[in-house]
Amino acid sequence: MSGNGNAAATAEENSPKMRVIRVGTRKSQLARIQTDSVVATLKASYPGLQFEIIAMSTTGDKILDTALSKIGEKSLFTKELEHALEKNEVDLVVHSLKDLPTVLPPGFTIGAICKRENPHDAVVFHPKFVGKTLETLPEKSVVGTSSLRRAAQLQRKFPHLEFRSIRGNLNTRLRKLDEQQEFSAIILATAGLQRMGWHNRVGQILHPEECMYAVGQGALGVEVRAKDQDILDLVGVLHDPETLLRCIAERAFLRHLEGGCSVPVAVHTAMKDGQLYLTGGVWSLDGSDSIQETMQATIHVPAQHEDGPEDDPQLVGITARNIPRGPQLAAQNLGISLANLLLSKGAKNILDVARQLNDAH
């Protein structure tokens, strides 16, 4: 009898209710805020589980004197976190989706994509230029951005401005803007500013005609071990179906173009009346040469937790077992079709030249 009692006690200790789920994140304040929001949602869904947040620095956090596009290494903000995932030191990792490459290392998958916040870019102005827009900034004003995508589009749109690289986390960039006289304004992701509670610093939100956004911008991705079915089931509740389908289309477009950090590629997606609209573009580094096109596809946005595919093969690095396969494939095909259209119009040449120029500098 006593033996059975011990077995029952052991089973209770090993039951999922007692389990601590370890969540990996970057150390920056924004990353911690984003991770806290994901953990809060998981806690609400699984009140019996405990969650421990483990923060670590990544290569991208450490190399702050070089433009991201020049470092010449993929997975700048993800490699150390993936290493911890691989060694079973954490069970899942919360990322900004735009930091996750469209091809993940073997053994990993994006197990959830959370509801997207505003994906557009924002302009934050130096205190002396508050009330201005990019259009009304004085001639030769210097605007800071760490992104080739932003610089290429904005140089084309605002030729009277000069664009220079600015690195560091959000706090560091804002301090550089406010305390030094080098920059009249800087460009940042609206979602990051909003998550930090800095709505009052948003001086201008850039519309798609001015600057399309990065693939996955404004959404959070939760990376897990691809074979860890328990954790895949656990994080599945975080999937937002519309965000998922938009981001599958965007990531398929980028992957098929073979774009990345070192080339200016941008997108804009919208879901309306059962249609998914995808606009994508590529630019030369100075913005003088560009190709942009829009395509659409009829896609039914499923309700969360309709029964999805059981075999769960990944699409552009994403596993969404609780979302039907048909809409996911339709979104992926839309991204591939748009990429093929741009490639047929000469996108590869623009991107190759951009890559060579970026590598040469």
Rank of each mutant, 00 (worst) to 15 (best):
V237G: 05
R164D: 12
K272W: 15
E82Q: 06
S69M: 14
L193A: 00
P127Q: 14
G131E: 09
T102N: 11
Q181I: 07
E89W: 08
P106K: 13
Q50P: 15
T243F: 00
L100I: 14
S57R: 11
A339Y: 04
N118L: 06
S147T: 06
D359V: 05
L30C: 10
R175N: 11
A297Y: 06
Q275D: 05
L161W: 07
Q180A: 14
I186E: 15
I205E: 14
R355L: 09
H305E: 15
L188A: 11
L148R: 10
K74H: 10
L245E: 04
K62P: 03
L137E: 03
A152C: 11
L342R: 01
G346E: 15
V20A: 09
K79C: 11
T145W: 06
V124I: 11
I21A: 13
R116N: 04
E258C: 15
T58M: 11
R201A: 02
L68T: 05
T41S: 12
T25S: 11
T172L: 11
A55P: 11
L97V: 12
N118K: 09
L104H: 10
I53Y: 13
A185V: 07
R150C: 06
P309A: 14
H239T: 14
A270S: 07
K27V: 14
A189I: 02
Q304G: 06
D36R: 07
T66F: 09
Q304M: 06
Q181G: 11
D65K: 14
Q34C: 06
E210K: 01
E250Y: 01
A249S: 13
P138D: 10
K62Y: 12
P324R: 13
E135W: 11
G281D: 00
T298C: 07
M196R: 06
L30G: 00
S45L: 08
A214S: 06
S184I: 12
A55L: 10
K140N: 11
E209R: 09
T109G: 00
A354E: 11
N349S: 07
L244N: 05
G24R: 00
Q153H: 06
I71L: 12
T109N: 05
N171M: 11
Q153A: 06
H160I: 11
Q50G: 05
V224S: 15
A297T: 12
L64F: 09
D36P: 00
E310S: 05
L68D: 09
V143E: 04
I71R: 05
A252F: 01
L85K: 03
L329Y: 05
P138C: 10
G259S: 11
L285G: 15
S147N: 00
L85Q: 06
L161D: 00
T298H: 08
Y213A: 01
R19C: 04
R321L: 12
D273R: 14
L177T: 07
A214Q: 01
Q181N: 06
V90F: 05
L81T: 10
P309Q: 10
S146Q: 14
G72F: 14
Q153E: 05
I21L: 15
I323G: 04
T59N: 06
G218Y: 01
I248N: 06
I323R: 07
L76V: 13
C261K: 01
F108K: 01
S45G: 07
L97P: 01
E139D: 13
L137P: 02
L188R: 03
I187F: 09
R246V: 13
V267A: 05
K272V: 15
T319K: 04
G317E: 00
L342P: 02
T269P: 01
T298E: 10
Q194H: 07
L193I: 05
T190K: 10
N169W: 05
G131C: 07
S288F: 10
R26S: 01
E242T: 07
E139L: 14
R201M: 02
E293C: 07
A331P: 02
K70H: 09
V38S: 05
F158I: 12
M271R: 08
K115A: 07
K157R: 11
A191P: 02
H95R: 02
R195K: 03
I54C: 04
L148I: 13
T319N: 05
Q153C: 07
L49K: 08
Q180Y: 12
V124M: 12
K272N: 14
S28N: 01
G131K: 08
L245A: 14
S57E: 05
L76A: 06
G216W: 03
D61L: 10
L81G: 07
A219P: 01
E52T: 11
F125H: 04
T298V: 13
C247V: 09
V237S: 12
S75G: 12
P47N: 13
L329P: 00
T294D: 00
G24A: 09
L177W: 01
S28K: 02
K115S: 14
S69P: 11
G168C: 02
A219L: 01
M212E: 06
L285C: 06
H300P: 10
E89K: 10
A270V: 13
E89P: 02
K157I: 10
Q29Y: 08
F108Y: 13
D286L: 08
E86W: 04
I71G: 09
G107R: 09
N118C: 13
L100S: 07
T35A: 11
Q217Y: 07
I291V: 07
G236E: 00
E162F: 14
Q304S: 13
N349A: 15
L177Q: 05
G168N: 04
N200G: 09
E310T: 02
V202S: 06
A303Y: 06
S96F: 01
F163I: 13
L232V: 11
K227L: 14
S262Q: 08
V353I: 06
S344M: 05
G259A: 11
A266R: 03
L68S: 10
A44L: 10
P105R: 10
L49N: 03
I71P: 07
T279L: 06
T136V: 10
P105A: 12
S75D: 06
L85M: 10
D228C: 12
T109C: 11
R32I: 14
L276H: 01
L92R: 03
D91R: 04
P327S: 05
M196Y: 12
D307G: 15
P313W: 02
Q328E: 13
I248W: 05
L188P: 04
A266I: 04
T78V: 10
T102H: 14
D233L: 03
I186A: 11
L154G: 10
A214W: 01
G308P: 05
D312G: 02
L170R: 02
V235G: 04
I350Y: 15
